[in-house]
Design a protein around this nucleic acid. Structure first.
Lengths: 160, 160
DNA sequence: GTTTATAGTTAGATTAATCTAACATTTTTA
DNA sequence: TAAAAATGTTAGATTAATCTAACTATAAAC
């Protein structure tokens, strides 16, 4: 099965996300979600139907097949993990993290995504809580220099 | 001026990168670099010419305008910085880091890129050399757990 | 300096993604 | 339940990006 385009991945993901809060899925809702017109949605649905990723009863409701649902969740998972990384680790603003996640989710490799996920988890499970070194990064990002008192390994200055 | 497509950015970047090692730029070289056929290049060159980003003498050489060169360098800078971050910080393999950089360079925001650059610089200028915490991340990525002896802040176990 | 090879261009097709305008169906409501 | 409103579909256009095949111009080689 040929790789989905960015656009089709967006439609799948939209359907998935809408279905998290909505019992039924309509063409109009997808159009609103993605900021496109309804004929574009109909076109995309046709393409997704051909690939066996959605089922659509004419003039009626719409749902993902198992295969479609799996793919949609994969894309959305990337979205969420990218968001966490950008916002939670790098300190990118909320809105920009979302926007970037939305774009990059279609292009990042499994390998890089896995490393990012691990990195986020590494920070989140840090035994010392919010890591000192990440506080230092925030300081560095803000002031353009490392915080004073950490010129050699360890925390010798602090401990003294 | 309307935003460039991913494709046109790739052409600009290709021309820039080729020009780093080649005195003259030819359609054929661009085609080879981007793995496309020459008519596709001619088409793209036409689009870039319209936007005032390249100059092309028919059947002859080709060069970037100042504006084109600036844009090309911006894209290529993103490429290099993404590569450094993926490969150098996250530990993504060389080939995948390159591939991902190639894709993501067209989509990442200035804000997120700036934070990644700062992060890389933060690590590179770390007073202790290669940071302990990054060693810990590598350990974590490999073994799925934090290294032993760092259950509380500081390096108390190591110092003892 | 012709011929041959290489490189570049044009023409025309295809696929994807979008749109507007017109039409069809379904749902709401008076 | 018939008219109006909302929603969905189809038809047809546009833009971008690619391709193959055919043609043209320049460069190389004999």
């Amino acid at each position: 099965m040929k790789k989905l385009t960015q656009s089709l991945e967006d439609y799948l993901e939209a359907i998935h996300v809408i279905s998290l809060t909505s019992k039924v899925i309509r063409v109009k809702e997808i159009a609103k979600f993605l900021n496109v017109k309804t004929p574009s949605v109909v076109d995309a649905i046709g393409r997704l139907t051909q690939r066996g990723l959605v089922i659509h009863e004419k003039y009626g409701y719409l749902e993902l097949t198992d295969k479609g649902s799996k793919l949609a969740r994969e894309v959305y998972d990337k979205h969420k993990n990218l968001y966490k990384f950008f916002n939670g680790i790098l300190g990118v603003s909320d809105s920009v993290s979302k926007k970037d996640a939305c774009n990059i989710e279609h292009y990042i490799s499994k390998e890089a995504m896995d490393r990012m996920i691990k990195f986020t988890k590494f920070v989140d499970t840090c035994p010392e809580g919010y890591p000192e070194w990440l506080k230092h990064f925030n300081y560095y990002a803000k002031y353009g220099r490392h915080p004073a008192g950490f010129s050699r390994k360890g925390f010798q200055n602090k401990e003294s």
